[in-house]
C-alpha cells in the first residue's frame, strides 16, 4: 500500500489529498459532496450508527485516513473512543456496543468482506433492529465508505502519519440545494 500520491493535486498550491485529487473531476466531486452531505444529514439512521459502520470499513479495508477521522455528529451522539476501540474482530463480545450496533457491524462485514456472514440469525437480527428504510440508507453508506476507501488507497492518498482528527460532519451546502 502506497503513501506516495499516484495522482497530482488539481488545486494549485495544495498537496495531493482526496479533495485536491478529486478536483481533477469537478462534476464527480460536486455530485459526491451533495450525496454525502444528504446521506449524513439524514437522521433515518443515527450518525452514531453510520460512524460505527464507517469505522469498521476503515479497519477492514486498511484505510488509515478513514480510521483516524471522526465526524462530530457521531461523537456528540456518544461514540467515544472506548466504543470505537471495540469495533475490531471479536466485537460480538463487546459490552460497550449495543445489540443494534453489533447487527450493523455484521451487515457491514458481510457487505465489505463476506456475504455469507449475513445468513440466518445475522440477517434476522439486522431486520429486527433496523427498518427497511434504515437498511437502505445504511447500505448506501457502507457502499460509499467501501468504494471511497478503496479509491483513496489505490490513488496512493494514504497519509504517512495522521493523528485522530474530529471533522465537521458532511452537510448539504444550502447554495447547492
Amino acid at each position: 500500500m502506497s503513501t506516495t500520491p499516484r495522482v497530482s493535486s488539481a488545486i494549485a498550491g495544495e498537496p495531493a489529498h482526496f479533495g485536491s485529487v478529486l478536483a481533477h473531476q469537478p462534476d464527480i466531486a460536486a455530485s459526491f459532496a451533495a450525496l454525502y452531505g444528504r446521506f449524513w444529514g439524514s437522521d433515518v439512521v443515527p450518525a452514531r450508527i453510520k460512524e460505527v459502520a464507517r469505522m469498521r470499513n476503515a479497519r477492514v479495508t486498511e484505510c488509515g485516513f478513514c480510521r483516524n477521522v471522526r465526524f462530530d455528529k457521531a461523537v456528540a451522539q456518544g461514540l467515544g473512543e472506548d466504543v470505537v476501540d471495540d469495533i475490531t474482530d471479536g466485537y460480538e463480545a463487546s459490552a460497550r456496543l449495543t445489540d443494534t450496533e453489533k447487527a450493523v457491524l455484521k451487515f457491514t462485514d458481510a457487505l465489505i468482506h463476506d456475504p455469507e456472514l449475513l445468513t440466518g440469525d445475522a440477517r434476522a437480527a439486522l431486520q429486527r433492529h433496523l427498518t427497511p428504510a434504515q437498511i437502505a440508507e445504511l447500505g448506501l453508506g457502507v457502499t460509499l465508505f467501501l468504494a471511497l476507501a478503496k479509491a483513496l488507497i489505490t490513488m496512493g492518498l494514504e497519509p504517512e502519519e495522521m493523528t485522530r482528527t474530529v471533522l465537521p460532519t458532511p452537510a448539504v451546502l444550502e447554495a447547492a440545494e
Partner: peptide
Amino acid sequence: ALADAECRAALVDL
C-alpha cells in the same frame, strides 16, 4: 471501486 461495492451490495441482497 463503486462497481466492486455494488456487486457486494447485490451479493447481500440489499
